[in-house]
Design a protein around this nucleic acid. Structure first.
Length: 304
DNA sequence: ACAGCAAGGATGTCCTAACT
DNA sequence: AGTTAGGACATCCTTGCTGT
């Protein structure tokens, strides 16, 4: 190779991490230009920053065989604590305790019939599509989330297979093609129809933000809280019911869920129609602007 | 056309296990 | 204990895409 390898110092890594926190991942040039980090990262290019960030993400989430071997060695020497949350990604500290926490906190994902599934009993059967939607929703990035951030989110939450990035790329491409995601500037946003089908699976209606061109965002925590409180209330009711009453209540719940689904479907159609309206309106506005500009220029030419 | 970025290939470095 | 082979990781480099 041409240039000799320059190992990253902890100071450089810290500057990179701080830069990403401040400007976001993908803004490598901006981070380099930031006077706060430019002196520390003066020997690095934007590509170096990108590569290092990639490596840091891999080290923090995807455990290579070297780490596995180390962990196996340690496992044989002492036992682990198992009640800690996994740390933030990417992790710069090579602190042993944090490494252990990540392994313990990771939720394994498995591939079955070409679909990515979570092996955790709570969420078994979840598909990669759902995870992607969850990631984009949770990241709450105004202009959408790029592939790296989506991958990092999922890898942070779940233990992913080694070829996860490739699977994710293919899935994102597929979702963008079939219209479930909208890709703008390498960033992905959720198409309204995808949100409604996601919500339908959760049997909860989202709060619509009116006829807006921006995709409707569903607050995951709101859904979770709503579902939990609803379930708690239902369970409390059911404890006091007879078998017949419980059966009747269940039938009513099914009917309500079906009605909600139909309503959601209708709302999805409306949202899509609204989007089309907005596009048409924008096209009209642009045409009007062009006409006005032309008239203005003609007037200028005629009247001086 | 140019700049900036992501993706992926190429290659040096490090680590571990096996062997002597 | 020293050496070596193989694998994994870290970094550099190239290419193609996208936006201005």
């Amino acid at each position: 190779m041409g240039a000799p390898k320059q190992k990253w110092t902890s100071e450089e890594e810290a500057a990179l991490k701080a830069g990403v926190v401040k400007h976001g991942s993908g803004k490598w040039r901006t981070i380099l230009k930031d006077p706060e980090y430019s002196s520390i990262l003066s020997l690095r290019s934007n590509v170096d920053l990108k590569d290092k960030w990639r490596n840091m993400s891999v080290t923090a989430n995807g455990w290579g065989s070297r780490e596995k071997a180390r962990m196996a060695l340690r496992r044989s020497q002492h036992t682990y604590r198992s009640d800690e949350e996994s740390s933030e990604c990417p992790d710069l500290d090579s602190d042993e305790e944090e490494e252990e926490e990540e392994i313990v906190g990771a939720k394994p994902l498995t591939i079955s019939n070409g679909m990515l599934q979570i092996a955790s009993p709570k969420q078994s059967g979840s598909r990669l599509e759902n995870l992607i939607i969850e990631a984009i929703t949770s990241l709450k990035e105004p202009s959408g989330s790029n592939k790296t951030n989506i991958a990092m989110y999922i890898e942070d939450q779940y233990n992913t297979p080694p070829n996860f990035k490739r699977i994710l790329s293919a899935k994102l491409k597929g979702l963008a093609t079939n219209g479930k995601l909208i890709k703008v500037n390498r960033k992905y946003r959720i198409a309204p129809s995808a949100i409604f089908s996601q919500v339908r699976r959760n049997s909860v209606m989202p709060v619509l933000e009116g006829r807006h061109k921006e995709p409707v965002r569903v607050e995951k925590d709101d859904i979770r809280n709503l579902m939990k409180s609803q379930i708690d209330a239902e369970l409390a009711k059911m404890r006091t019911m007879s078998v017949q009453e419980a059966a009747a209540a269940a039938a009513r719940a099914v009917a309500e869920a079906e009605a909600a689904m139909a309503e959601a479907e209708e709302a999805a159609k409306e949202a899509e129609a609204a989007e089309a309206d907005a596009d048409a309106a924008q096209a009209f506005a642009e045409a009007a602007m062009t006409t006005l500009k032309n008239r203005y220029t003609t007037n200028l030419m005629v009247h001086g």
